[in-house]
Design a protein around this nucleic acid. Structure first.
Lengths: 73, 73
DNA sequence: AGAGATTAGGGTAATTAGGGTT
DNA sequence: GCTGTCCTAATTACCCTAATCT
């Protein structure tokens, strides 16, 4: 049954999923992790997982929109 | 200590729960146990259970935070 | 005692790590 | 400096059936 095991409500993303969000190669995501630009969680086998909240935060923070929006139609 | 000697207040996790924490397939957790990367306890029927403290310890140990915050050039 | 969900097991594809290069 | 691609080796994911757990 479903045990109330909701330790941290943080979902983890695979390198491929993060790469898809940023439209980059998974290898690039790996480089970000190696450079300490993004936090990572390693599986015992050495593969990386990323916190979705952190990734989303980076996406939002790195997103810039036009300051003068569309005024007329 | 007033605490009753209950072996240990250790909570045991199922392969599925451990898999969710690492964002891997339950089968992968089984492989970790077979490879000796993680301690396991077998039920009389052969199913595996894992110590929560050990799992969380591994998770914490394999976690790396971003060293440089969202840096802007 | 039955029913539904999870797990073990094996085998095969898909990802990922890491280095080096463009 | 940053990213994409080629390579090999390792790890992980998905397929199945049978057994176990709740």
């Amino acid at each position: 049954m479903s045990a109330p095991t909701q330790n941290s409500n943080e979902r983890l993303l695979t390198p491929g999923e993060v790469a898809a969000l940023f439209r980059v190669d998974p290898k690039t995501v790996t480089r970000w992790a190696s450079a300490g630009r993004i936090g990572s969680i390693r599986t015992p086998g050495g593969h990386r997982r990323f916190r979705e909240s952190e990734v989303r935060g980076m996406l939002a923070d790195l997103t810039s929109e036009a300051t003068i929006g569309t005024q007329r139609h």
